Simulated scan of single mutants.
Amino acid sequence: MRVVWLDGSADAVAALDAAVASALDGGEAVLPLNSADPSAPALLAGMAPGTPEEPGTAVVIATSGSTGAPKGVLLSPSALTASARATHDRLGGPGHWLLATPAHYIGGLQVLVRARLAGTRPAYLVGDGFRPDDFAAAAAPVLSASGPAYTALVPTQLVRLLDDGGAGLDAARAFDAIVLGAAATSPKLRTRAAEAGVRIMPAYGMSETASGCVYDGVPLDGVRVELDADDRVRIAGDVLAHGYRLAPELTAESFADGWFRTSDRGRIHADGRVEVLGRADDVINTGGVKVSAAAVERVLGGQPGVRDACVVGLPDPEWGEAVVALVVTDGAADSSGLRAAVRAELGPAATPKRLEFTAELPLRGPGKIDRSAVKARLAI
């Protein structure tokens, strides 16, 4: 297994791009890691790089750890290319790509795979942080090329482009499609993007499905989605990983009979559209009533002045668990009004017992809310 350390430079991304190309052609498997992540050495040690790789593996991608300890997902050349081809088919054909998210996560790495299959050269947005002017500069060669132009972002990045309203937003408008993944796209963000003339494609997927596999509620060609008896989402298709590195028991638990069992609850509508309702473990049992944290977040996020929200359950001597919320606002929202809105739509049990405001939510990985950090803050 070849380890590629990504240090925020274009040279490092180019080295990864070349290594992935070789791996897709049957060469040595690649493990991309973030050199700025203090946990990366321990993660590397846990994956035992000297151990022979499982046959058929092109890339070992580390999960963000949002559902526990990071895992090494084993992806074959066929899974990666099946995802890339199906994405191009859904977006409107092969095109030119801008890499604007970290390439050590699957959403960024797939940009490299898609460009490789399209026969185009990707542009890179590198460096620390995300600045709209830098995004515009990095997008310029992609937007000036002949053919469709695509990029992939996380919702936080899109919000910053919309808030800035300058050259970065102009560049975003010029893309034929922006795949939006890693976190849920709120109705409010959909509306803002549409009003600004930005063409987004919300995507649901994970490392185990070689990136997004359900686009705007519709599974990609070759992908099947169904629900377990407890409404847990299961996914099948050529995009699936073939397990976790050095974890046969975990592999057997998650992958069986051609299906991957996710940690998410869902709903499938009559027209076949898939709706993800939130993580299966985000249910808060308060006073004997089960409350979906995701449902409370959707109500809070839909209120005027609210930019983002995270809802968690904290131990409570009276209620067992108390519903508490950390909310990002533009200053136009107040806690009593927000609590009243939740009560009116979801009932008294779902109403946050405590609600605090913050300038931004803590994030981890490619743009997911760090719920452990939120719990730690609200527990004080």
Results as ranks from 00 to 15, higher is better:
212 G>S: 13
288 G>R: 13
226 E>F: 06
292 S>T: 14
19 A>K: 06
338 L>A: 04
172 A>K: 05
179 V>Q: 13
207 S>W: 04
126 V>H: 14
143 L>Y: 06
84 A>N: 01
124 Y>G: 12
292 S>H: 13
303 Q>T: 04
365 G>F: 09
98 L>C: 14
110 Q>D: 13
35 S>M: 07
196 A>C: 07
3 V>K: 01
294 A>C: 07
173 R>H: 03
7 D>Y: 14
372 S>R: 15
86 A>C: 02
261 R>M: 11
76 S>I: 02
89 D>I: 00
33 L>E: 04
207 S>V: 03
247 A>W: 00
314 L>K: 07
373 A>M: 07
65 G>C: 04
98 L>P: 14
145 A>G: 05
28 E>I: 00
158 L>A: 08
261 R>I: 03
190 R>F: 02
377 R>H: 14
45 A>I: 01
52 P>G: 03
68 G>H: 03
185 T>H: 07
34 N>D: 15
166 G>Q: 01
198 V>K: 05
336 S>Y: 03
306 V>A: 10
281 D>Y: 05
35 S>R: 15
178 I>F: 10
88 H>P: 00
377 R>Y: 10
57 T>S: 10
218 V>R: 15
129 G>A: 13
63 T>H: 05
40 A>E: 02
264 D>Y: 07
182 A>C: 08
175 F>S: 10
169 L>K: 02
238 D>C: 00
197 G>Q: 05
291 V>Y: 13
286 T>Q: 10
61 I>R: 00
242 H>M: 03
242 H>L: 02
294 A>L: 08
284 I>F: 14
61 I>M: 15
167 A>M: 00
163 D>R: 15
86 A>L: 02
353 K>S: 15
193 A>T: 07
274 V>N: 07
172 A>V: 08
206 M>H: 06
272 G>V: 09
83 S>A: 15
259 W>V: 09
138 A>D: 10
372 S>K: 11
24 L>R: 07
148 P>S: 12
25 D>C: 03
44 L>V: 14
230 D>G: 12
369 I>W: 02
9 S>H: 08
186 S>N: 06
213 C>I: 10
242 H>E: 01
301 G>E: 11
332 A>H: 11
298 R>N: 12
117 L>S: 08
283 V>H: 11
357 F>Q: 05
251 T>N: 08
4 V>N: 05
8 G>F: 13
376 A>K: 13
226 E>D: 15
161 L>M: 09
273 R>E: 12
257 D>E: 15
252 A>C: 04
180 L>K: 10
19 A>N: 06
212 G>I: 00
145 A>M: 04
1 M>P: 09
44 L>W: 01
58 A>W: 01
200 I>N: 08
95 G>W: 08
178 I>N: 06
172 A>P: 06
330 D>C: 07
305 G>R: 11
260 F>C: 04
78 S>P: 00
249 E>C: 00
17 D>C: 06
158 L>W: 10
367 G>E: 11
187 P>E: 08
145 A>Q: 05
27 G>P: 04
180 L>H: 10
212 G>Q: 12
102 P>A: 14
182 A>R: 09
348 P>R: 11
80 L>S: 03
82 A>P: 04
71 K>M: 06
68 G>K: 04
254 S>V: 12
125 L>W: 14
32 P>T: 05
165 G>S: 09
327 V>H: 07
250 L>Y: 00
244 Y>L: 02
286 T>E: 11
195 E>Y: 01
102 P>Y: 12
320 G>K: 11
46 G>M: 05
239 V>T: 14
66 S>P: 00
